[in-house]
Design a protein around this nucleic acid. Sequence first.
DNA 1: TATTTTTGACTATGGATGTTGTCACACAAG
DNA 2: CTTGTGTGACAACATCCATAGTCAAAAATA
Lengths: 223, 223
Amino acid sequence: MDVVTQAKTTSVPGRMYRGESHAARKKERQDKLSAAALEIIGTEGFKAATVRKVCREAGLTERYYYEAFGNAQGMLKLVYEQQIGRLASTLYEAVNSVEQTPTAMAEAALTSLFGAIKKDPRMARVIYIEIVGVSEELDEVYRKGQRRFDELLVKLSKPLYPEENTADLDDLLMASALVGAITQVSRDWVLANFDRSITALVNNMMALVVGVITHLQTRRPAR
Amino acid sequence: MDVVTQAKTTSVPGRMYRGESHAARKKERQDKLSAAALEIIGTEGFKAATVRKVCREAGLTERYYYEAFGNAQGMLKLVYEQQIGRLASTLYEAVNSVEQTPTAMAEAALTSLFGAIKKDPRMARVIYIEIVGVSEELDEVYRKGQRRFDELLVKLSKPLYPEENTADLDDLLMASALVGAITQVSRDWVLANFDRSITALVNNMMALVVGVITHLQTRRPAR
DNA sequence: TATTTTTGACTATGGATGTTGTCACACAAG
DNA sequence: CTTGTGTGACAACATCCATAGTCAAAAATA
């Protein structure tokens, strides 16, 4: 009935608890839950990451699962975006910490990528395997995530070849293809339990990248 | 009790029915069921392909679902392998029906691939999206499937560059990377509702393939 | 025709899971 | 101290689904 006082009492976000604000507690819970979700999705797969299981792993109850994720897709989306974000930072850092020549940068990025994958295969499983084919919404999230790396690649390689040579080509498409190549190799590598050395992977992928760039540099304009 | 007569009567595979042998009926049912499964998996996704749904789509009952597939993973595996098989035949045919020069063959394969995808996106969804990340067993099936195409690619490109240039590289790895690139582009293309022309895709992918091959032809042996 | 197999429609069972709700205790605020 | 909010353990409910089973009609075989 009394809308005004209702609004007053319920509009307050929350009170302190154990010395922390509502927002701080909420964030802590989300961190715990997404760490638990990463662990389960990254080792047993998305299907295995049930509400109860994630909550038990996190040491929290179902209420906070819904607070943090809303639903299972929200959980996967959040974990995916966290991992993609971390990886992108790692790669940017690697690229910026070497001499600014194209091959050095490419090599740094690749080494850093494969290193990150080996260091935390759960991440690779989430961003390369589990995210795919769950729902239309998540497929769209995945595409957006991949495009991040496409754009990084375009930015790195754009200075390397004259614009007019590529009138009939499509930067983003080529970048997406290269990222796809690297992704595929990464996926195989994970699924094969790291059966090769990082150097071998980097050397091969460098041949691919340099091959494409060289091709773009030297080709005649398309008929 | 009477084990001998039991064995005698039950060891017979089956009798005729509606003019068809047991084997023929069984195959017909499997065809109907796998067509139904392809339709549902390819349009609504693997998760949506429940036993009842597939059976209703096929016009058959659950008993024959288990006869044909055993379980849901068996269903996906069968459908995947059928589609992979069909696609491989299509590509081989395309490659063999043009003049036997590398670029012509590569162009034929790519054109044929993108054509097949556009003609039946359900196939693409099954072999590129739905098969991934379901279970370890199916991941293995997927890897084996991809390797088919890797090997086709190696066979096609092997004559194009001298062996000694590639001592530190790995044919299969490079092929897998290229197939990954093409797969990624295909996936994006499907998810983006065929937003580009087949020629554009083929041209771009040709640049990639030719780039790599040229690189392999001209590079100095690795230090 | 009598018997057995094959098939289709349908039901039953059991398990897993998402989601909501209950209740008691911990803690904060007045 | 009292009141109300935050929290954790857990139960209840509803839903979906794989899988097994029942029963009668159709068709083949003897």
